[in-house]
């Protein structure tokens, strides 16, 4: 990831139409945008599509960004809105989206280069987590994504979702309880998964 000091310059240049700079920006943020998208979609390809849409939207409205120093937060909010839109679209067309199956096998790049058992375990865990997170109510999923993927503080999340910080804490707690119930089987041998992580 590029040092934060270089980013404003990249943003300025990208705003002026420099594709290489924009690509650098994408590279700098692709992982968290993708992860967040994955937690919402539960599917690798859908997550990539969603992440790409986020960057496309950001590119399309880059000129409206006045403070180049706030690119990261700006992008986060675009990502948040895009995810929300995606979820709404999915709710609107439930038949158009199959519930994500636990990922596994070759399609998962993260599994490459690992032993089959490791890959299986990682794939299983990833599918279970994606499934558990996508099953969360919108309000809870948002805070989980913002907290775990975007790494935002309670105050930041509260500002983004227009709720109070204590509500963020409460929602996170509720989300964790639900997740820990959903992931009870996995968590039992978390030691191995933790080791894998």
């Amino acid at each position: 990831m590029d040092p934060a000091s270089e980013q404003p310059e990249l943003v300025r240049r990208a705003r002026d139409g420099d594709v290489a700079s924009f690509e650098a920006l994408v590279r700098a943020h692709e992982r968290r945008i993708f992860c967040a998208a994955y937690l919402v979609t539960g599917d690798h390809h859908a997550a990539e599509d969603l992440a790409q849409e986020v960057f496309m939207r950001a590119h399309a409205s880059l000129k409206s960004l006045e403070d180049v120093h706030r690119f990261s937060a700006w992008l986060s909010s675009i990502a948040h809105n895009t995810r929300t839109d995606w979820v709404r679209r999915r709710v609107a067309r439930p038949n158009g989206h199959a519930k994500p199956l636990p990922d596994g096998g070759d399609a998962d790049p993260a599994a490459r280069g690992k032993s089959p058992s490791e890959r299986l375990a990682t794939g299983e865990a990833r599918g279970a987590v994606a499934s558990a997170v996508t099953d969360l109510p919108d309000g809870l999923r948002h805070v989980v994504v913002l907290r775990y993927v975007e790494g935002l503080s309670y105050v930041q999340i509260a500002g983004m979702l227009d709720i109070s910080p204590s509500s963020v804490g409460e929602r996170l707690h509720r989300a964790r309880k639900k997740l820990s119930e959903a992931l009870a089987g996995l968590a039992a041998d978390s030691g191995r998964i933790g080791g894998a992580a």
């Binding site: 692709e30 937690l39 790409q52 993260a110 990833r126 933790g194 894998a196």
Partner: peptide, 28 residues
């Protein structure tokens, strides 16, 4: 444990190689 599982899974998640290049190209 749940926290660790979550973090573990998220850490292993990355988009495909060339995602950035594709996206930039598409945007351009």
């Amino acid at each position: 444990r749940t926290d660790r599982v979550l973090r573990g899974v998220l850490e292993g998640l990355v988009p495909d190689e060339g995602f950035a290049a594709r996206t930039a190209a598409a945007a351009a």
